[in-house]
Design a protein around this nucleic acid. Structure first.
Lengths: 331, 331
DNA sequence: TTGTAAGCGTTATCAG
DNA sequence: CTGATAACGCTTACAA
């Protein structure tokens, strides 16, 4: 591997000079600059990022921790984070926490040892108060729990309300909400929104709980349709669960949307892959990821940190959700 | 940040001693060891990975380059790679190449500068002969193009044959293959398999080409059903395209599987999220990722490199595919 | 068994 | 404008 020393030797200058033209700082004469650039090209020299990191204590890497990249919500998010990071010259290190606090902890530790410049952490049950003491910027994405962290979330509460409202408008008389796991903030919020709305409007409703996965959703759906045959408007806490409910309904020959209307949450892309297409409360997934990434970089590069301390708006970013009208609700 | 020096000072030993107990090599007395361990704990010292990397020229990181993490095939793969990497103490750096040769090149460059220990590169059009000269282990995953690279792929050719055979067995008379983009090896192989089988059996068939995405698939499907109303057995080159064809068929009221049978390829998890469930030629996705990861680590740690040079079996790993019978083909 | 010191490849300070 | 040189935090000969 060719180092800065090799270049310096060949160009008959000192390493300091080479470093200067590399970083474009400090004075360096036209001549020197030209010859150095030339030799760099000739020797195909690439500065060693690790050495640089060691000295500068910054790696141009961002750690992204997700509970499970296989959950279709996260690839879209990850993609956005990476796109923006890339734009600014950062590399993203992706980690699966598996919702395991210890595993997450280990990752954070490992990443810090690698001098990652910032961390973006997605939804999780823990409150992770421990992390705020870390000396690197952390963005909470789709995750609430510590007000001291810069946060990016969708308006889950409003989404819950909208779902209930939409079902009511479409004529559903007996609502159901399949809520996500207790303790996961986004699930809790969607539930709260739904509940507030049905209470305010004195609607008939039931609530069941289900993890954000297909198989549990299918099992629950089977039981649910037996138990609550009168339910004609189901709001699932995410699209995967909604898909499970849709699948079981179709399998049983329950007419969707005529007898049973169905709304999901998230707006992940495969909602469009099925037929009937899923009606869903969509989060601006890509925007959320992009924003989180941008904020993280902003914090890293030290811009506007103070401002954000004072301005609540730039501390807590809640993005609006929007209805995507598919075929699982009436026109 | 607490460094090895701090620990040494506090423990009244030299940094060398601390380093020795840290790495468990070289002689160190019971006493010294005890006190060092003690102070490490007290000071909550974590060795700096960057400094270590600089010296050792190894980072315990593996770079994983995928064309697009949003394509549902890759999260499963990535997950497997990461799980195994983790097991052996490696961190995975995920990069999206976007099928862009230059972007991929930039990533490889950037990763090398970070002293990644190995690279796993997934399907791509380029032949990337350039990379074999790199001085780090590279695994080609779901990607063929350079025989000198250790390769992990599914038996795409056989999959293509199986799909055609299955459709024939189920009584389809007029077959169609919606092949993936020319130049992508896996797509080419599936096509070859399909073609060989229909030729050998003198079956009626047509072939269309479509990129591995939903929208193009839907557009093509619409045209396709108009143009080839007699087609009663469609083999799509991946599950996303199959989903697109299924969706349009259902929308048009074409009875699936009675009038039209449909087979996808990949076996991604959302094939189960829809109803009717997709019949598909499944790749052992997780196993492929896990194997690639294991092979990469094996190469990194220098085991069996020579052996693999001689034994073709350990150079080219082709995993078997298997039919997943869903509801889009007859029972 | 332990310590000293020379790297690893950069950057930045400080004289010239 | 340029060049020595001291960091950055760790590992490992080589001495002791």
């Amino acid at each position: 591997m060719v180092t800065i020393k090799d270049v310096a030797r060949r160009a008959n200058v000192s390493v300091a000079t080479v470093s200067r033209v590399l970083n474009q700082n400090g004075y360096v004469s036209e001549d020197a600059s030209r010859i150095v650039l030339q030799t760099i090209k000739e020797m195909n020299y690439r500065p060693n990022a690790v050495a640089r990191t060691l000295y500068k204590k910054t790696s141009n890497m961002i750690g992204l921790i997700v509970p499970d990249i296989e959950n279709p919500f996260f690839p879209e998010l990850a993609r956005a984070v990476e796109d923006v990071a890339n734009l600014y010259g950062y590399t993203v290190v992706l980690c699966n926490s598996d919702q395991d606090v210890e595993k997450e902890q280990r990752y954070v530790e490992a990443l810090k040892q690698k001098y990652v410049d910032g961390l973006i952490m997605t939804s999780h049950q823990s409150q992770f108060n421990d992390y705020v003491d870390e000396n690197i910027p952390i963005i909470a994405l789709d995750r609430i729990g510590d007000e001291r962290l810069t946060t990016v979330v969708a308006n889950n509460y409003e989404g819950g309300r909208q779902a209930a409202h939409y079902l009511k408008e479409k004529g559903a008389k007996s609502l159901a909400h399949i809520r996500g796991p207790k303790g996961i903030a986004s699930a809790d919020e969607r539930y709260r929104g739904f509940l507030d709305y049905v209470m305010e409007n004195e609607l008939e409703y039931v609530v069941e709980e289900c993890s954000f996965q297909l198989s549990p959703a299918e099992r629950l759906a089977a039981r649910f349709y037996d138990e609550y045959p009168q339910a004609d408007g189901v709001f699932a806490s995410n699209d995967v669960v909604a898909a499970g409910f849709l699948k079981v309904a179709l399998k049983r020959g329950i007419p969707v949307p005529d007898q049973l209307q169905l709304i999901g949450f998230d707006g992940i892309s495969f909602g469009h892959m099925m037929y009937p297409e899923l009606t869903t409360v969509a989060q601006p997934i890509y925007e959320m990821g992009a924003l989180a990434s941008r904020l993280c970089i902003k914090l890293i590069e030290g811009k506007e940190i103070d401002q954000s301390k004072n301005d609540p708006e730039s501390f807590f970013h809640q993005l609006p959700v929007y209805m995507v009208e598919g075929d699982t609700t009436k026109k």
